[in-house]
């Protein structure tokens, strides 16, 4: 997967995201999520990196639940494990769609990020004529995320050592405190990260690998992606019904 030119991967990603955001069929979105899930497994990223999926997927779950329970009238009831639960059928449909869009999009992005380096991604964005400031900001955000993740880990360890996660109540307090502290530290750390970038020649422009012109070999390597793109398109327009 790493042999496929990052520009073609980016185009594929954009294509799938466009289809995903236009699609209203949950089956299509489930298929997309499963497809990228398989690609991610195939890419074999480090296990720790999967933690990055937690926050967006949690948000997806929250959106779903919010729509499910508070999606508006008419409300219906269902019995789950002996409990009578009121839910909104309309909210269920909306929430499911929203959550699946988030999940499939996040998995697609994750696959893309794990199978390409930052400078390659910057190069591809530059090739696609994305404005330089946007590339710079995205690049800085990405760099900052990995630094910040470590910072949060350290804060969590410091609290764990002082028994900050004894029970759900203390865990909630600790998590909330880390959340607040994280914002404060974000300013401090971003300043240091910026300084570290400056002393190594950062002048406001993102480093981008200037891509070589696309050749037949590039396209040949990307045949699996083109095949997948056609498959997705067929599924999207519904001419090839698998359900």
């Amino acid at each position: 997967m790493k042999n496929i030119d990052v520009r073609l991967k980016l185009l594929f990603l954009i294509f799938i995201l466009l289809l995903g955001s236009a699609s209203t069929r949950p089956q299509f979105l489930i298929f997309t999520a499963c497809f990228f899930g398989c690609l991610i497994v195939f890419t074999r990223p480090p296990l720790r990196s999967f933690k990055r999926l937690l926050i967006p997927l949690t948000f997806a779950a929250i959106f779903f639940l919010a729509h499910f329970f508070f999606g508006g009238a008419p409300m219906e009831t269902v019995t789950i494990l002996g409990q009578l639960i009121r839910y909104s059928p309309q909210g269920f449909v909306m929430g499911r769609l929203l959550a699946l869009r988030i999940a499939s999009g996040v998995l697609a992005f994750f696959w893309f990020a794990q199978s390409s380096t930052l400078t390659q991604i910057n190069g591809a964005m530059t090739w696609l004529r994305v404005p330089a400031p946007v590339v710079a900001v995205l690049s800085m955000t990405w760099r900052y995320l990995s630094v910040y993740e470590e910072e949060i880990c350290r804060m969590r360890q410091a609290r764990t050592l002082r028994l900050g996660y004894q029970d759900w109540r203390s865990a909630a307090v600790s998590t909330a405190a880390i959340g607040g502290q994280a914002v404060v530290r974000a300013f401090d750390h971003s300043e240091r990260t910026y300084r570290a970038m400056r002393i190594r020649g950062f002048d406001g422009r993102a480093t981008a690998e200037r891509p070589k012109p696309l050749t037949v070999t590039h396209f040949r390597h990307a045949i699996p992606l083109f095949t997948a793109a056609v498959l997705f398109l067929a599924l999207y327009v519904g001419r090839w019904q698998v359900w």
């Binding site: 930052l118 400078t119 900052y144 630094v147 240091r192 300084r195 570290a196 190594r200 020649g201 200037r210």
Partner: peptide, 25 residues
């Protein structure tokens, strides 16, 4: 060093300076 290393991998971090100085990948 935690203030200085900000890229995900060691190679990417060390490459950062030369890339900013205009070296190709």
């Amino acid at each position: 060093p935690n203030d200085q290393l900000f890229a995900p991998t060691v190679e990417e971090d060390v490459m950062y300076g030369p890339r900013n100085l205009g070296e190709d990948g």
